[in-house]
């Protein structure tokens, strides 16, 4: 999908107008951002916004996240185990340190997906 984020009042207003006028190309709206369908029409609207408002409009292309293909098993199981922890107040660093199998937050931070 195309993620359009606006950074100025005028750009935000134009994005709202585009979303109101072309609901069919909008997947979701978030205040000053929106996800547009990945069609040439979606690209046309995104580019039109950028043409009009320059750097006040950011356009990115998003990809679906498949945790089974995109994230290693140790990350999935760490997330699952952490959410099933006994004490809600335990920070993840402490939780990982107390177990053998879960990666510490630093190593997670240093590993690109």
């Amino acid at each position: 999908m195309l993620l359009v984020v606006t950074y100025a009042r005028a750009a935000r207003q134009t994005l709202r107008n585009v979303c109101d006028a072309h609901e069919d190309c909008v997947v979701r709206r978030f205040g000053r951002a929106a996800l547009l369908r990945e069609t040439e029409f979606g690209a046309f609207q995104a580019l039109r916004l950028r043409e009009k408002h320059g750097d006040d409009v950011q356009v990115e292309r998003t990809a679906a996240f498949n945790e089974f293909a995109d994230a290693p098993e140790r990350v999935r199981s760490a997330a699952e185990a952490y959410e099933a922890r006994d004490a809600a107040s335990t920070p993840y660093a402490k939780f990982a340190a107390g177990s053998e199998e879960h990666p510490d937050p630093e190593s997670l931070r240093d590993s690109e997906l």
Partner: peptide, 9 residues
Amino acid sequence: ARDARERRL
């Protein structure tokens, strides 16, 4: 630069 734009907004 967008951080600054965000702050301005």
